[in-house]
Simulated assay, not measured.
Amino acid sequence: MSHRGEILNQMAQRIPYLHFLGLRFETAGERLTAVLPFSPMLIGNPAIPALHGGVTAAFLETTAIVGLLWTGLPEGEAVALPALPKTIDLTVDYLRPGLSRDSFAEARVVRQGRRYASVHVEAWQDDRSRLFAQGTGHFLMPEGVR
């Protein structure tokens, strides 16, 4: 794992809810993927069983925020954990039930300025081409994060 990936995983461990969910980040070159390991406690609808909608939304929002940070972290340099962007809004499209298996998500920064950023995020399980959720978020950038 790269130095930037280690920083992001440290950040996730410092946020109690993300630690509770078991959320982690994996890197491959410049690609950052969020991983939400399946756990029975994440089920919201036991009849299907399907992931809770709030867990899905938190997964997408976190992936978007970390994706923003990922683009601004220098590689190979020791840096302090950055301040987090603040969510202005997040729109989630629930495309199909998230089933009882590991989930993955990736963010794409659509626009990032000094004060505002827009990010699109997609989540899948077994097949990258079959999304179970996607979202678009707008964020207020903290001072010093570019």
Rank of each mutant, 00 (worst) to 15 (best):
L140S: 14
R114Q: 10
G72D: 08
M141S: 07
A117Y: 03
G135Q: 04
A78L: 08
L73W: 08
A57R: 03
Y94Q: 04
P74Q: 06
L99A: 07
D102N: 11
A78P: 14
S129N: 13
A58I: 08
G72N: 11
L69N: 01
I65V: 14
V79Y: 08
R4A: 10
L42I: 09
H120A: 13
A12F: 01
L42M: 12
R146K: 11
P16D: 10
I48P: 03
G22S: 01
I7S: 04
E106K: 15
R24G: 07
S2G: 13
G135E: 05
F139T: 07
F139S: 05
G98W: 04
L73T: 00
A58G: 02
L73A: 13
G72L: 09
A58N: 05
Y116A: 08
S103G: 15
I43K: 11
G76Y: 08
N45M: 05
S100E: 14
L23G: 04
E143P: 15
L99Q: 07
A34V: 02
T27F: 05
L23A: 12
F104C: 10
L23H: 04
R14Y: 14
I15V: 11
A34P: 01
T136G: 12
R96K: 09
E106N: 05
A105I: 09
R31N: 15
R108N: 15
A47L: 14
A12Y: 06
M1K: 06
W70F: 08
A105N: 00
L23S: 05
M11L: 14
G137T: 01
E122N: 09
Q13K: 15
A64D: 00
L8F: 03
G29E: 12
G113K: 11
H19D: 11
L42N: 03
M141K: 10
P16E: 07
V92S: 05
P37H: 03
P46F: 15
D126H: 06
G53D: 02
Q112V: 04
L68K: 11
T71D: 03
V55R: 02
G76E: 02
T62L: 01
G137D: 00
D89I: 05
P16R: 15
Q125D: 01
I88A: 10
S103D: 01
R115N: 08
S118A: 13
P97A: 14
I48T: 12
P46W: 12
G53H: 09
R146F: 13
L131D: 08
R101S: 14
S100G: 11
G135K: 07
G137C: 10
W70E: 00
G54L: 10
L60A: 04
L18Q: 13
S100I: 07
P49E: 05
L8N: 02
G29N: 12
